[in-house]
Structures are given as structure tokens and as C-alpha cells.
Design a protein around this nucleic acid. Structure first.
Lengths: 134, 134
DNA sequence: TATAATTTGTGCGTATGTATA
DNA sequence: TTATACATACGCACAAATTAT
């Protein structure tokens, strides 16, 4: 529950609680989160704090939101494995807006960047993993 | 500038503009962003919209914020190259709260996960890149 | 098919707290 | 100490998309 005297921000406390319920499996991938109104009533917080809590989980890649429907626990996609040349270097970062659009990435999903000879290959990290092959 | 008839959310328009100024070099790494009050005045938006715009850039890993100080364009860290054994599989995701604390990661910075034989090694993506071990 | 109810999104305002300069 | 600046928390109204009636 929410402790208004703990010093920890209230929206953080709610985010912590929702994260715990997701990790414990009580809220499984694909499941609906409680509605904002329900969260307001059960937590005693205002709508702003509730929305901020959900935004944290969205930016962590744990929740996806759409207008008009309940927010959901993000379900993992089928993962393909891309080979990486031995001399290549691998980095990760958040996508630029164009990359988000190109890969149709939800919030909170990074990209993998494979650099080799001044060329860069970008992969969406929610669908691709890399295999380093000698 | 902000176009209130474009249909695009106002905070998104401001985020776009700030991103453009960062990418163009007008706001270079380490530089201060304009204060929230200044952004309110120059954009004509309310404080909520201004803070949302900055939050987008923070979650994209482009800006770091601290209470009492101006927000700044994130400066890149020195990058070390970690060796990765052959046959290892590499993924990327946003860090869990414990990982954020352990690596002192700001918002918007993912982690690299190297998996090999049921063991996982986690690296902060703002300081580490991966290369196949020779 | 049309209407209403639900749900999330956008935008504004106010007040107060806390860290920095 | 004072002023500046970002953070937290609440409230309201309306818009837009989905779902239920």
C-alpha cells in the first residue's frame, strides 16, 4: 500500500507495487492492468500520480498503453537470432523517433547497434538477439 | 515553433524542437537546456507540457535532470570494450531498478545482456560496448 | 446500426517541497 | 539568506479511441 509519510514519492510507490505484481506473475503478460479509476480508488492517489506510475512501467518496457483500452503487461515477441561478424562491435541505446516508427517499437524498448567498418546495422531489441560467431 | 492547429500534441512538438536543437549541435553535450520558465515563455505552453517534453528527452537518454539545477544534454561517457566469448547471445533491455542503482544509470539508458550457458552478464550500455573475444 | 459508457490522452491551473546557485 | 529551478501532488475540463448496450 501507499505510505504518505515514507518520503518516497507516491507515484514511485505505486509503480513499485505494480512492478512487483507483474514480476510475481499476478499480472501475467498480456493481462490488463487495473483501470486508472480503479488504481485511483485502491491507492488513494490522484490521477496524475497514477498516470505517472504507469508511465514508469511503460518507459521500462513492461507495460503497453493504448487510448480507449486498458493498459496491458507487455507480451514478449518471437525472437530471431541475427549473426554478428567477429570484428563487429555491439552497442545498445534508445531508438530515434524514425527508428521507433520503422520498427513499430513501443516505449521502453531499446535497439541493438552492430558497427562494422563505418557501417551500422540497427535491430529492435524486443524481437532480435545477436549471436557472436567467430 | 508550436502550432496549436497541427493536431500533433504540443508537448511532442516541443520535444521535437529540443531534439532537433540537440542533434544540430546548437545544444551540445553538457550544455544547459533553457529553464522550464524560459521554455514556458518561449513556447507559450503551460508548465505541464514543458515538463512532459523534457521527460521525453530524458527517457530517450538525451537529457539528464537534477533538482535545483538546469537540465543538461547528456554527455557521453568513456566507453570500454568488454570481450564476449564465442557462442554467446546478446540482448538489450531497460534495466531493473536494482540494476539502475548498481550502475548509477540515468533514465533512458538500456543494459546489454550477455547470455552463455545459463549465466547472464549485464553491462550498462552508456559505458560498455561488446566485441568478440580474440 | 446507433448510442452510451468506459478508458486513456492532452492541457491547463494551483500549491508546496527540496536542492542548487 | 535569497532567489532560482526542478520535483511532487492535487484538481478540473475536454478530446479521442475503444468497448458495451
Amino acid at each position: 500500500m501507499i505510505d504518505r509519510r515514507s518520503g518516497r514519492p507516491l507515484y514511485q510507490q505505486l509503480a513499485d507495487e505494480l512492478r512487483r505484481r507483474i514480476l510475481s506473475g499476478e499480472l501475467s503478460p498480456g493481462a490488463d492492468l487495473p483501470s486508472e479509476k480503479t488504481l485511483e480508488q485502491t491507492s488513494g492517489l490522484g490521477r496524475g500520480a497514477v498516470r505517472r506510475a504507469v508511465a514508469i512501467l511503460r518507459n521500462d518496457g513492461r507495460v503497453v498503453c493504448q487510448r480507449g483500452r486498458r493498459s496491458q503487461v507487455r507480451a514478449s515477441n518471437p525472437v530471431t537470432t541475427a549473426p554478428v561478424p567477429a570484428a563487429a562491435v555491439v552497442r545498445a541505446r534508445m531508438p530515434a523517433p524514425e527508428e521507433r516508427a520503422r520498427f513499430d517499437l513501443p516505449d521502453g524498448v531499446p535497439v541493438l547497434v552492430v558497427a562494422l567498418d563505418h557501417t551500422e546495422q540497427v535491430y529492435p531489441a524486443d524481437r532480435v538477439q545477436l549471436q557472436l560467431s567467430p
